[in-house]
Amino acid sequence: MNRPPEEFKRIAAKDLKTFGTACLKAAGMPNEQAEQLAGLLTNSDLRGVRSHGTRALYGYCRTIRDKKANPNPNIEVLAETDTYVYVDGDGGLGYAPTMLATEMAIVKAKEKGIAVGAACHIGHYGSAGHYVRRAMKEDCTAFSVQAAYPQYYTSNQDKRAAHYGNPPLCFGLPGEEGPPVVLDVATCILADYQRGEEIEAIEEMIPAAFFKSMGYTAIATLLGGAFVGQGSERAQEIAEQWPAARMGSLVIVMNLGLFAPVAEVRHGVDELVRLGMEQMVPLRGYDEVTLPGTPEHRNEEAYSRDGVPIAFEDVERLGKCGREFEIAPPWLD
Rank of each mutant, 00 (worst) to 15 (best):
T18W: 07
C23L: 12
A26C: 05
A27W: 03
A34G: 14
T42G: 12
R47P: 09
G48M: 02
H52W: 02
H52F: 01
A56E: 11
G59M: 07
C61T: 04
N72E: 12
N74H: 12
T81Q: 05
Y84G: 06
Y86C: 08
Y95Q: 11
Y95A: 07
T102A: 05
K108I: 01
A109N: 08
K110D: 12
K112I: 10
A119D: 12
A119V: 10
C120F: 13
M136T: 03
E138Q: 01
A142R: 00
F143M: 01
S144C: 09
Q146M: 11
A147H: 01
P150E: 09
A161G: 14
A162I: 14
Y164R: 13
G165D: 00
P168A: 04
L169G: 13
L169P: 12
G172S: 07
L173H: 09
G178D: 14
D184W: 02
C188M: 06
I189D: 05
Y193F: 15
G196M: 07
E198L: 04
I199M: 13
E200N: 15
A201W: 10
M205E: 15
A208D: 14
A209P: 08
G215T: 03
Y216K: 14
G224M: 00
Q230V: 06
P243T: 03
F259K: 12
F259I: 10
A260H: 14
R266A: 05
R274I: 05
M280G: 13
P282W: 01
L283Q: 15
R284K: 15
R284N: 14
G285I: 08
L291R: 07
P292T: 04
P292K: 02
P292Q: 05
P295M: 00
E296Y: 00
H297W: 10
Y303T: 09
G307S: 05
V308T: 12
P309F: 00
P309Q: 00
E316I: 02
L318I: 01
D333F: 13
